[in-house]
């Protein structure tokens, strides 16, 4: 079975994963039969509009950076998992989308990074609200896990993981010390 990094548990770990990622067409889905599937956002929307009966426990979506998902946000918030695609690890749009999903819209489910997901970006991704990481297939996932284990203890600015910037903590520490 396929493996991913689960960053929601402490300490983060490599775990087996049952979700099937569907990149393209409906045909792929039929092959998966009853599996839990991560559908492309646009396909998911079309299926819903067509009245398809989607199993709420076995249906997730993945977003590309271009997808405008705002109109569907209520349905998205009910999903158990949302994945965000990184077509290239240098394309940073996914960080902002993750941050917005977590903080602006309050998505509470599993937020997964897919695509060109590499060890050296995991710390930033985790800060922006990602909780699982589908590391690029040709990379050693056990090695990649170190990207979450050797993070920074100091975080100047707030993000999805902790909205409070360091300056407010410095202030509290000072008050506590007085």
């Amino acid at each position: 079975m396929k493996k991913i990094i689960n960053g929601q548990i402490q300490p983060p770990a490599v775990v087996e994963d049952h979700w099937k990622l569907v990149r393209g067409s409906l045909a792929e889905i039929s092959n998966h039969g009853q599996s839990a599937t991560i559908l492309p956002f646009s396909l998911w929307r079309e299926l819903r509009q067509a009245g398809a009966q989607l199993d709420p426990d076995k249906t997730a979506i993945w977003l590309s950076a271009e997808d405008d998902f705002r109109d569907e946000i209520d349905a998205i918030l009910a999903l158990p998992l949302v994945a965000i695609d990184f077509p290239d690890f240098r394309d940073g749009r996914g960080y902002s989308i993750a941050y917005l999903l977590r903080t602006r819209y309050g998505f509470k489910g599993e937020l997964r990074a897919i695509g060109d997901v590499l060890r050296d970006q995991l710390f930033y991704m985790h800060r922006c609200g990602f909780t699982s990481f589908d590391v690029r297939a040709d990379k050693d996932i056990a090695e990649a896990l170190k990207g979450l284990q050797t993070g920074f203890s100091v975080r100047y600015q707030g993000s999805a993981d902790d909205p409070v910037p360091l300056f407010r903590k410095r202030q509290e520490a000072e008050l506590a010390g007085e």
């Binding site: 690890f89 240098r90 394309d91 940073g92 960080y95 902002s96 941050y99 970006q121 710390f123 930033y124 991704m125 800060r127 922006c128 920074f152 975080r155 100047y156 600015q157 993000s159 910037p165 360091l166 300056f167």
Partner: peptide, 17 residues
């Protein structure tokens, strides 16, 4: 200085266009 801290290792903005 405050902006330096805000910008330093800002997780959302490390891969801008």
């Amino acid at each position: 200085e405050l902006l330096r801290q805000w910008a330093t290792l800002n997780p959302e903005f490390a891969f801008l266009p």
